[in-house]
Every structure is written in structure tokens, then in C-alpha cells.
Amino acid sequence: MAGNFWQSSHHQQWILDKQDLVRDRQLDLAKLSEEEYQKIFNFFASIIQVLGEQLKLRQQVIATATVYFKRFYARNSLKCIDPLLLAPTCVFLASKVEEFGVISNSRLITTCQTVIKNKFSYAYGQQEFPYRTNHILECEFYLLENLDCCLIVYQPYRPLLLFVQDIGQDDQLLTYAWRIVNDSLRTDVSLLYPPYQIAIGALHIACVMLGKENLKPWFAELNVDMDKIQEIVRSIINLYEMWKSYDEKKEIQSLLGKMPKPCPAPQR
């Protein structure tokens, strides 16, 4: 569905307010600093990305899965559902919504097992992926409820293509900006700003990186709130700054240790 963003549930229910977002995270931020919280999301976004790639999903589907994941934890603490279960559940649901062929239950579980073992052993050591199909299916119902059945997510990719077309096809610019949009999934911007603004923000960063001074007039003529674009740019640049001094392989185990975890039913 490429319908009207302004009338969509995305625009009407899921462009969140920054203050609300911070407030709803209080429980988790009591145990984690903002930076640690972001690092944990960065890690699970990687899991979703790699799972999606292994399952040969389009980037659009991967991005949608990532947004489901972020939306769930925007309203709930990390302790409510183990993110290691929610991540593949988001991939599973997004692949069905985007009509990209059903992933069989067994293929999903096998892929999770291989990915965790081969690509994320630095985080989980010898521990295997612990969940089975029935866990994913149960989790899927909770996810759908918490998303309030809002499953169509608008992504920055389509507006980005249109903007680049408007600028005059520039493959290098598109490639850079496309990657920046991918990276933006590791920040909160998809919860806070409409996708077309994220596309402009990504283009802006790409222009700076490529030293494309000549595009300044193009930006100046856009009828957009440049303050918002600057906020988006700042969020993404902050991510890049964080990456410079961060070694996920070294730090993630202790971060996962600190993460709030689900509590079992009380013993009788």
C-alpha cells in the first residue's frame, strides 16, 4: 500500500513525542544509561538485519520489522518480552504483511539458530537460540496487540528515490543516502519523524560527506521544517560518533547482563 501517509495510522498514531518517549523509558533508564539503551537497540537491530538478509528479505521488510521492534519497546520495558524472541517475531510478522512469501516456521527457527551461533557468538557464547515456533507464535499475538494492529509502516526509501530523481539522478548520492537511512534505523528517528523528513536528513548528511555544496539551493527551496531536519541529522551523527569509540564485541555481553529481564511466575 502506497497510500496517503497523512491519513495513515503511522502518521496519526505512531509519530511519537520525544518527551513521551523518554518518560515511557524511565523503568529501563533506571537500570541503563541512555547510551547503553541505544547500544542494546543497536545490537538487536543488527540481529534483525542479519536475520532478514539470511532470509533474503528486501530492505523494506527488514526496516518494517525494525520499526515494529522499536514501537513495541516504545510502549513497554525491555523486561516485558525477551528482545531475542521479539526480534525474529518482528521479522516473521513483517514478511507476511509485506507479502513477500511466508517464511516457514521451521526455516525461521533454523535461521535464528544459525545466525545466533555463527554471527553473534560474541554476545551469546555457546548458548543456543532458545526459542521454538510456539514461542514465536505466542509472542506474535502480543506484538500485534501492542502495535494496535498498525502494520503498514512508511519508510524513507521511496521518498528518498523521488528526491534523488528530482535532484537529477546521482547514483553515488543515492547509495550514500540509502545507507544512512539504513543506519537511521539504529536511532529513534523512525519513532519521531515522518519518513520523508528522515529521507531529507539522510540526503543532507550524504551531501556533506560528498562535499556537494552545489545542492544547497535545492535544500533551501524545500518547503520543510529545517529544524526538524537538523534534529534528525544530529541523531544520526550522534550514532556515528558513538560508533567511533564503541566496540560491540567487547561490551555487549555485559550490557545484555545489565538489561532488565522478564520475571517468571512467582513460585507457589
Binding site: I81, H135, C139, Y142
Partner: peptide, 13 residues
């Protein structure tokens, strides 16, 4: 097996 879902969250939902 890890606890997949928080008991309190489950009951509340």
C-alpha cells in the same frame, strides 16, 4: 530455558 515473557506483563495484558 530463559523466561520469554514477564509474568506481571502477561497478567496485566
Amino acid at each position: 530455558a530463559p523466561v520469554m515473557m514477564d509474568y506481571e506483563f502477561k497478567i496485566k495484558t
